[in-house]
Amino acid sequence: MHLIAGGSMRLRDRLLSLCGAIVIGAGMASASLAATAAVRSGDTLQLGETVYRLDGIDAPEVDQLCIDDHADPWSCGVEAREQLTRLIAGRAVRCDDLGPDKPLKSRRLGLCTVDGDKLSLNQQMARAGYAVSADPAVKYRAKDDIAAAKEALRGIWKGCFVAPGEFRTDKKDGSLLGASCRSDRDREIRDVLFPDAPSAPPGCSIKGKFAVRARVTGNIGIYHLQGCPSYPATTEPDRWFCSEDDARASGFRRAFNCRVPKK
């Protein structure tokens, strides 16, 4: 009888200890299991059902254009996405979950690392020159790595571009960044960076249009899905998005004539 009681007490103590550890860990950053990643953009990837934005950096949007070091238009947003894909190279990825992403609460901030690598993907993208610093950062402060990439003229820093945040808000008079910017070609450069009829990047079919009426709902624009009555009529979109999450994170809402897609 005493042996049974003693065993029950030890079992209860173990369970209480385990529950305490779970409660303590609930408020801390959690690491996901290693999984195959689907790259969404130069700073966003998906592991299973969870979408992570890489903490501390802001990469060009997939539909964003830059100017390269030869003064030619360059799909730097597509290149940033491909750079992240190359860094992962089909290997498993783990992400420390740092909490919800402010622009889109359904998306998470992450410090993500490929199995076998010492440096995080966040740091590798910053060092490769495919991002600017995103403040406030939760864990990874990218400024030093980005400053080094800028000095070495890596990635987008060898050309001319506007910060991704200014591209998202259509700030055509924003600061020009990069070694190839020329004050005597300011107008021509901005015409390239903000084209009147941008081309759709590969895999991106959602049309976005800046609209004053969208401000009623706290947005800056409206997006149109294929199959929506407004889709064919939106002949000159201002933005192209690869997913509804991307559109919402950029401050766009779905057109009211678009029905919710059936799952």
Rank of each mutant, 00 (worst) to 15 (best):
G218M: 07
I24T: 07
P136Q: 09
S175A: 15
A38N: 08
V162D: 04
C258S: 09
A126E: 09
R254Q: 09
C228M: 06
V39G: 00
R94E: 10
C95P: 04
Y223P: 03
Q124V: 00
K139H: 11
R248F: 09
L104T: 06
S17Y: 10
R185C: 01
A211D: 14
L121K: 00
C66L: 02
P100T: 06
R40C: 09
C95K: 02
R253K: 15
L18P: 04
L84N: 00
G227A: 08
L193C: 06
D144V: 10
V260Q: 14
W74K: 04
V132C: 07
G227Y: 04
P195Q: 08
Y52L: 04
P73W: 07
S175W: 12
I4P: 05
V212N: 10
E166H: 15
F161D: 04
G7L: 14
K263Y: 13
E79P: 01
G6W: 09
D13S: 13
V93E: 02
E79V: 07
R168N: 09
D72R: 15
A26S: 14
L119D: 15
R253Q: 14
E151A: 15
R86S: 08
D186W: 07
Q83Y: 02
L109G: 02
S106Q: 15
S106L: 11
L109D: 04
G155N: 03
S30N: 11
R12I: 14
Q123A: 12
L87P: 00
I156C: 06
G221V: 05
P136D: 11
R86M: 05
L54C: 01
G99H: 03
R53Y: 03
D238N: 12
K207I: 06
A152I: 08
L3P: 01
R259C: 06
A59P: 01
D191P: 02
E79A: 14
G6S: 13
W240N: 02
K118V: 15
D63Y: 03
A59D: 01
V260N: 11
N257P: 05
E61C: 04
C204I: 04
G208N: 06
E166V: 07
A29N: 06
S30Y: 03
D245I: 09
A80H: 02
D68C: 04
K158S: 12
T217R: 15
A131Q: 05
V51C: 01
I222K: 08
L176W: 06
T44E: 12
D43R: 01
D55V: 00
L87R: 08
D245M: 13
K118Q: 11
S133C: 13
K209Q: 15
C112A: 10
I146Y: 02
H70K: 15
